[in-house]
Write a protein that binds this DNA or RNA. Structure first.
Lengths: 344, 344
DNA sequence: GGCCGAATCGTAAACGTTTCCACGGAACAC
DNA sequence: GTGTTCCGTGGAAACGTTTACGATTCGGCC
């Protein structure tokens, strides 16, 4: 005798009553509910996931699809760990569980997602590494699976998304740099279809032209979004005849490579060239100290999970009906890497 | 009409036949099998996870328990992403899926694991952040859940584990350093119950005494295993009257903090003090270049997954019966951070 | 022709849970 | 005493799948 039957038999009552007692329904007397709870605890009974899911058509778990082993994600692996912590904390409070689903580099992301959804693995989804043109968005919208995309996309199906405030960061950084006399400001732009910060490059151009500074395509560096990319930028910059006087990298890890490349070329951040980057556990230990946009990953995870709940009809208290679009503000913290006045 | 019934109806055959055809049983004619496969592909049918799991008592998925938001894991968050990639690749080839289960910092790991197991979420488990005394090991052994622990533990229940070759690293590093004249060699030791490299400290002492070098407890630094810990070591070292001439850090991220601390104190790695660390995406961009133990995370993940399969009776072709204990060898690659002869 | 075995396929039970429905009894109003 | 309501409980159906088992067909062989 296993499962719910065991505790029912132990108390000599029906399994229906046990189930009702445990699920907090009110058509069961308070005395039997107490006895059931005790017995369940004593026997270490926890409802079987498959049975419950099969019956109620809900798995009580949320999937977080990520893609491993590709340069897409080098945005910062540590990025995810912090986010998971926040997401899981919120979900637990609502009786949900977070299951992270790594799509290996050998598998097609669309096929992977299809498998996950069709198998009925999860009640809702968070997808990351959103691409500018992303089939997953159309698919999930069409299948009516509650989901939220981490990162904007051009495949806008009126779907929910959550993204960093790239516009704000571009404007803030450029405002700060131009105030110090900089006019030649280099940035990183995504190479492929990865959406990573393409909003940023758009705002970059706007912010420049609104200040009557010419937009120079040569200052937009197309490299992979990882340490190697940062290093590559430094090498290119060092070799330029008319090099930029400042560089903005909206990415957690690129500054590591950039620093190394600059230092090798004899260029000191904060003295020979200004650098603004993004905060991370590692960047915090760069020297000279990096001026960067701070980011609490856990708080971001909390907001992300709440945004997902807001598009899940099953959660009436959080449900906001339609589509959620949330932009996460960032705060600039001063370091030494941009602390000089140009032409002074 | 949903699920398997739909494709059965579509072909006007019974659901049993459909199931058999898809599951590769041989009591179904080859012609109907082909028709079933076509129809399934056309209708986009994928067996429902809950139904299948309920019936066969197996979920075809492997859990990877990790703990987020604690300093335990700062061993390197990027560590896991690479490992996941390898693990998932192997599992897929055997029809399994990897689900990563993040235990948030707010939840008790033992309770978390109990919930996962009792709910029948997974067929097997990989547990990380193994502690020296870890209830999870006893629990899983007792429940007869196939699992493997990433990291050794004193709670040795004759259970399967997988760990880095700390003995080899200690011996190699000390051999290399003593050959260059070093006798005062500092190392990092775990603070709490985290097992992180406690094997290393043991071998460290052995390797020293076998070379007639006195073991000095003052050279064993108890700090958190993250960037801040590395930084703390540097500060302590700089302030010591009789400071070590070399430091070994068997951790992916500590060297980042250590470098910063040393440089702030005017100590140059590779000139004033020797440093040996562990490879990582970030450490690769330290300057001067870090002498470190290289590690392919993906390959480690592959070996880890194969080790797990070896303790799962359901996989007869890989099953090795009893307990698996596997030590992952590491290779030292020379950098500049220890490239000087002492007293030269 | 009758019988047997092999090859295919349909039927139905089973997995563990939730939930609808019905039933019995108590309480209450008439 | 009868009817009505309400509460608590048991029984059974249902979720979607796999699989043991039985049924059917067909060919071959005596």
């Amino acid at each position: 005798m296993k499962g719910i039957r065991r505790v029912a038999q132990h108390l000599d009552i029906s399994i229906g009553t046990v189930s009702r007692a445990l699920n907090g329904r009110r058509d069961v007397s308070e005395s039997t509910r107490q006895r059931v709870l005790e017995a369940a605890a004593e026997l270490g009974y926890v409802p079987n996931q498959s049975g419950r899911a099969l019956r109620q058509g809900t798995t009580k778990s949320i999937g977080f699809m990520m893609q491993t082993g590709r340069d897409i994600n080098s945005e910062g692996d540590s990025f995810f760990m912090g986010v998971f912590d926040g997401v899981q904390a919120v979900l637990r409070r609502h009786g949900l569980d977070l299951v992270v689903l790594p799509c290996s580099s050998e598998e097609d992301p669309d096929a992977f997602l299809h498998r996950v959804v069709a198998r009925g693995f999860v009640d809702g989804l968070i997808i990351s590494a959103t691409r500018r043109h992303d089939h997953r968005i159309e698919y999930l919208s069409q299948q009516h699976i509650p989901f939220i995309a981490l990162g904007r996309s051009l495949s806008d199906a009126g779907h929910p998304w959550f993204d960093l405030d790239f516009e704000g960061m571009a404007e803030t950084a450029i405002d700060r740099l131009t105030a110090k006399g900089h006019t030649r400001i280099g940035i990183f732009a995504p190479q492929s279809d990865v959406n990573l910060g393409y909003v940023f490059t758009g705002q970059y151009e706007k912010s420049l032209t609104s200040r009557d500074i010419a937009y120079d395509p040569a200052l937009v560096f197309r490299v992979p979004p990882n340490e190697a990319g940062g290093y590559a930028i430094a090498r290119q910059v060092a070799a330029m005849p008319n090099r930029p006087t400042a560089i903005i990298l909206i990415n957690q890890v690129m500054s590591i490579g950039l620093y190394r490349g600059l230092l090798e070329a004899g260029l000191w951040p904060g003295r020979d060239i200004a650098v603004i980057g993004q905060d991370s556990q590692h960047a915090h230990y760069l020297s000279p100290r990096l001026t960067c946009f701070r980011l609490s990953l856990r708080d971001l995870g909390i907001a992300l999970a709440e945004s997902l709940l807001a598009v899940m009809p099953a959660f009436k208290d959080h449900y906001l009906g339609g589509v959620v679009r949330r932009i996460w503000p960032m705060e600039l913290v001063s370091g030494e890497s941009d602390s000089f006045q140009l032409g002074g």
